[in-house]
Design a protein around this nucleic acid. Structure first.
Lengths: 198, 198
DNA sequence: GGTGCAGTTCACGCGGTCTTGAACTATATG
DNA sequence: CATATAGTTCAAGACCGCGTGAACTGCACC
């Protein structure tokens, strides 16, 4: 995938609103961006991945890597890698302003996709593996002989425990998806926000 | 809290079963213990906390710190701290064999208590904080003026997003508890079915 | 071709976490 | 009281992940 054209507005109009300050965030922006950074770190990602996404989401309009670099005070290389991760996870989009040469990046609206996606991935590669290990242990124990039936039962219990945690995890992912989908829907209905969707 | 008396059997009878090998785990034990270590690490704890609990659970009978130290190849000091953590979380118990002077440690059966407990704790101290930050950001933004209504809406959305993730998390904890308690049917008609309420 | 800028890659260093090992306290025993 | 053993605490070190900054590629424009 190579990115899409951005048709949201001409480059010139941005400067009237966005960068009177190029380099320092407004206080409220800093807080919000930091909050997203914390959430994302909480879920086992890199803090700066969250900060980048938060900035892009808040700004609404696509930013260049250089702008992100300045606003969040990150290194060139770092921004490059962060953007690549975020893009791979599908939570930002790489866009091209018509007659401009630089790439810009825009936030996809559901950050939850990132969380659920990678949580799913972790879960698949991991909890499944745990279950396999535990049943392997049980097999070995039976094979070796001399293991008390009580211990065999314990091994089995651990395996089913893992299985159930796995199941609960799946449920969590599913419901949190529904939940978020529901939230976004509720927004459009005007429950909280005003009218005038973008 | 200081521990409880252990009345599961006299000290002499243990040696006939438990420590023919003092130092190296049986292969199946190693696998199982390691599996628990992985799970626990996955949930954001220390790997060795999981290994200790796994060993205690599998063995069924209380072990001394020294035995744990040998079986899992850990340092004296490390075992001490690990045991203290596990005890504080209520997933192991400190017990005393009648006329013996050393402490022994026994696994509490629900490891899930540890997971849910600390997940709850994290969640309470954290996601709540995030929400506060986000509404603070929104307040500042309104106060500063000149912030587009669109951005205010975005801030609001982020806050409710956090709120809903929080809710989903609580649901997860609750169901995983129910699940482990053996009430498997509980979430069949409960969580998934209700999609009309948002 | 050469200059400049956008973007990528990667070895290194910083910062944080976990573990160790030694010093220390507590407690039982002769 | 002296000694030994169980248990705790903590500074030092091992370890690991992340971000940096420099070297590199690619591309556009002169």
């Amino acid at each position: 995938m190579k990115g899409y054209l951005w048709t949201g507005g001409d480059p010139g109009s941005q400067s009237t609103v966005a960068p009177p300050d190029n380099g320092r965030l407004a206080p409220y922006e800093a807080i919000a961006v930091e909050a997203v950074g914390n959430v994302i770190e909480f879920w086992g990602f890199k803090r700066n991945q969250g900060r980048v996404w938060g900035l892009l989401y808040l700004r609404g309009e696509p930013l260049t890597a250089g702008e992100i670099e300045r606003e969040l005070d990150l290194s060139k290389g770092g921004v490059s890698m962060l953007l690549r991760d975020l893009e791979r996870w599908g939570v930002i989009q790489r866009v091209r302003v018509p007659q401009d040469t630089v790439w810009r990046y825009a936030a996809e609206t559901d950050l939850v996709r990132m969380v659920t996606h990678v949580v799913e991935e972790r879960e698949a590669a991991f909890v499944t593996r745990i279950r396999a290990d535990l049943s392997e242990a049980r097999r070995l124990a039976e094979l070796a002989g001399g293991v008390s039936p009580e211990r065999l039962r314990k091994l089995e219990r651990m395996a089913t425990l893992a299985e159930h945690v796995e199941r609960a995890l799946r449920l969590f992912i599913k419901t949190s998806r529904l939940d978020v989908a529901g939230v976004l829907g509720a927004f459009r209905d005007g429950a909280l926000g005003r009218k005038g969707d973008r």
